[in-house]
Amino acid sequence: MQQADRRRFGAPEGAVPLRFASTSSSAKPSSSSSRLDGRAPEQVRPIFLQTGLVGEASGSAYIETGRTKLICAVYGPKPTPPSAPFNAKARLNVEVKFAPFSSGVRRFTPGKDTESASLSATLQQSLLPSLILEALPKSQIDLFLTILESDGSDADISAGVTAASVALAEAGVQMYGLVVGCCAAFVPSSPLPLLDPTRAEAKTATAFASLACMPALGTITNVGVSGVVSVEQLDETLQKVVQACGQIHGVAKGALEVESA
């Protein structure tokens, strides 16, 4: 039960999401490929990445991969408020928000919902090893990310990590390298894992692996695997994901070069 929110116009009493008559799904994988959109299993979706959309922010990035669309802005580094205790390293505050229209059914919870809180934690964990926060004592960096259109939460994290790192770079935060993310889904219908799965593909998956890394240094900053998967298969998959991250790193670098040119 949602608590009443007096600061917004709320839903009328008894409002329920639309219920659709079940129809036979017309989306079937084409014969030549195992994927719904005809990609090869290890092929990631094309990425559009642009910096500098939010004028007043220190750094910002908009990323679009397939249907996943999100925008990220960084404010800071700025001094912590006087009330905050002394910190020798800068603090990275991460807030992930879903737009109410981002995922088909209306997403609306006053305050934070659990999914965005866990996304924030993953994002923060993926970014922290790349940043030289020791260089900024007594300061904080605020990173805000709004998901405008979601196409599976794993794809959201991966795109979010890439956008966030590019925004931090544009803000001039010292870092060891750009962090990019990619994910893979293991589906029963395909012998090979599917990289960068869409929501429809992720629905049938038995396991997920998502990874964030700094391809310039060959360092992995965060790995998450959920579901049942054999060690050999996981090893093989993660190598493919790291390879894909190398390609994504090129896109991220390109976006920053365009901006500085």
Binding site: G14, A15, V16, P17, G55
Partner: peptide, 15 residues
């Protein structure tokens, strides 16, 4: 100008 915003519609059914 520089102002950018998105309006998205969602539908529900209520009495």
């Amino acid at each position: 100008g520089n102002t950018t915003l998105v309006c998205g519609i969602t539908l529900e059914i209520a009495p």
